Amino acid sequence: MNLANKLTIFRIFLVPVFMIFLLNKIPYSVSIAAGIFIIAAITDSLDGYVARKRNEVTNFGKFMDPLADKLLVSSALISLVQMGKISAWIVVIIIAREFTISILRAVAAAEGIVIAASWWGKAKTITQIIAIIAILLNNFPFRYINFPFDMIMMWISVLLTVISGVHYIIINKHVFKG
């Protein structure tokens, strides 16, 4: 097993650890959870970089890396709803887009077509991660100047989620014409 795949598996392992800290009411548990989330988010960038740099892109990585990302982000968003930090409709939009694009990719893959990540998809992921971190950290340090950075980033991530989803569907509509 190569290093990139080990990083992906490590990220999947971090998801339940993240959840344990996030949903427990022990001192500093949410801060620890935020740190774990940040480490997991860094491994997301790192595993792809390592795989490309070492020319070790594998089918396992192509499948598991996006799955690990979806597990991490979805678990964080669902937990934030449970904690009363964000509205459920936001999470429904984000997860619906993820299901839709995953299905699109699966249908394309069955036809031998690879749907590469677009700039919109990457921007969506980055803004989601920033928004989640800001919410986990209770909008630190922006809360001190009464600036809702966390919610602004969440709104931007929702907007980019919709735009990227529509973009993927439009540029890959030929996949559904069979």
Rank of each mutant, 00 (worst) to 15 (best):
N5M: 09
K6T: 11
L7C: 13
L7T: 07
T8R: 04
T8P: 08
T8H: 01
I9N: 08
I12N: 06
P16D: 05
V17A: 11
M19R: 01
M19S: 14
M19H: 02
L22M: 13
N24F: 10
K25C: 07
I26P: 08
P27R: 00
Y28K: 13
S29V: 00
I32L: 03
A40K: 02
A41I: 10
A41F: 13
T43G: 10
S45C: 13
L46V: 13
G48F: 07
G48K: 05
Y49L: 14
A51R: 03
N55S: 14
V57T: 13
T58F: 13
G61P: 00
F63I: 14
M64L: 14
P66E: 03
K70M: 11
K70R: 15
L71V: 02
S74T: 14
A76R: 02
S79Y: 02
L80M: 11
M83A: 11
A88E: 13
A88C: 06
I90H: 09
V91I: 10
V92H: 06
I93N: 05
I95M: 14
A96N: 09
E98H: 10
F99E: 08
I101V: 15
L104Y: 04
A110Y: 05
E111C: 01
G112C: 05
G112W: 04
I113W: 11
I113L: 13
V114P: 00
V114E: 10
A117L: 09
S118M: 11
G121V: 08
K122N: 04
K122I: 05
K122T: 06
K124I: 08
T125S: 14
I126L: 15
T127K: 02
T127G: 04
I129L: 15
I130K: 01
A131M: 07
I132N: 02
I133Y: 04
I135V: 15
N138A: 08
N138P: 13
P141I: 07
P141T: 06
F142H: 09
